[in-house]
Design a protein around this nucleic acid. Structure first.
Lengths: 189, 189
DNA sequence: TACAGTTTATACCGAACAGTACAGAGAATC
DNA sequence: GATTCTCTGTACTGTTCGGTATAAACTGTA
């Protein structure tokens, strides 16, 4: 029969969007089929492990993106202060000012979190760790750096929740802008 | 047949916990039946509107709690600074240091958010508004008060996400404690 | 053209889903 | 004791779920 997808990798972003919109349980195979344009036969050909394998593939994809675009710059940049600012900008674009949900955060709140607990934990642990590393030269103590990193990652996740709930992307931008400027102030002290 | 529940109100907290754990779609009638000890017959006797009515009842219950325990004190207290501190303490207890999910926030991220959009929006809008009102005497401008209120509500929601994801209630406490102390610093300026 | 491997659509499975129908049990009232 | 109203258990509806089996259609190679 007609070949629809050239690469398995091409459909992972589509899968990610379905999971983001409907969660893991809510993303039924018929929704997935509709969003990707692939029938069940094709889906189970590419992902013999079914929905769970689809989700782990999506998580691996997200993980890779954050690793290269967010974590590594924070960890290796010669100018941590600008790296942190770049992170806020990248995050704002990635989450579309809160109109795009953080799939990992959502998964952590849902009842399927146990199934993907490790991936969820790693994602946030690495994010906090990377940000804390970048903050270390700018803060009085390692403890301060870590606390501030937790504060920022939490702030970003909460900004998504709030912006979605109020259907107001400007709130997301405002919360992130304030956190960003607070780092700037701290640097001047 | 044997009467199990004296008051319909008694089972709403049980319903709330099921929805918190499994979300709206994930909370199947069999799970609800198990958690409440009521069969389908009883459930549809108390809630003829089915799951949707159960959720709206739960949301109304949550709304009432926050209105009396959080919003009103913020709006009417003679000492807004202490009212804000009390809010952080009450929130910490309510969400059990992040081990208990915010149902309204979760609902806002899920795909059933459209169905309860109004309740979700009201909840967060009133929270931000109440906190901004309490902050107004303590900040330079109304704009500052509002931005700081958004920041705090987002921080609380994000702290839940982060604490759940990392399975670390201490992070929730740390993030809230820092936000609380930041208000205190601002007051001294 | 013949063949092999890959990709697809479709029919199907048992289980679980939300919701309905209804008979009957318990308590309250008279 | 009869009646009434509130509550509950059970059986059932049609639908959808994730997943499987399979055969056919396509592509690449020869």
């Amino acid at each position: 029969m007609a070949r629809i997808v050239a690469e398995k990798a091409d459909i992972i972003p589509l899968l990610a969007e379905v999971f983001r919109e409907h969660g893991y349980e809510g993303a039924s195979l018929s929704l997935i089929s509709q969003a990707t344009g692939l029938g069940k036969g094709s889906l189970y050909h590419f992902f013999p492990g079914g929905k769970e394998e689809m989700m782990t593939s999506v998580l691996a994809n997200i993980d890779h993106w954050f690793e290269t675009e967010i974590f590594q710059p924070l960890l290796t940049s010669k100018h941590p202060a600008t790296a942190i600012e770049a992170m806020f900008d990248a995050v704002r674009a990635y989450f579309a000012s809160g109109q795009r949900v953080c799939l990992v955060g959502l998964l952590g709140l849902s009842d399927s979190r146990d199934r993907f607990a490790e991936a969820i934990r790693d994602y946030f642990a690495r994010w906090v760790e990377a940000l804390a590393t970048a903050l270390r030269p700018l803060t009085a103590s390692d403890k301060d750096a870590r606390e501030q990193a937790e504060q920022s990652v939490a702030g970003i996740q909460g900004a998504i929740v709030l912006a979605r709930a109020l259907n107001a992307p400007d709130i997301f931008d405002r919360v992130l802008a304030e956190m960003k400027s607070r780092q700037a102030v701290k640097r001047q002290e």
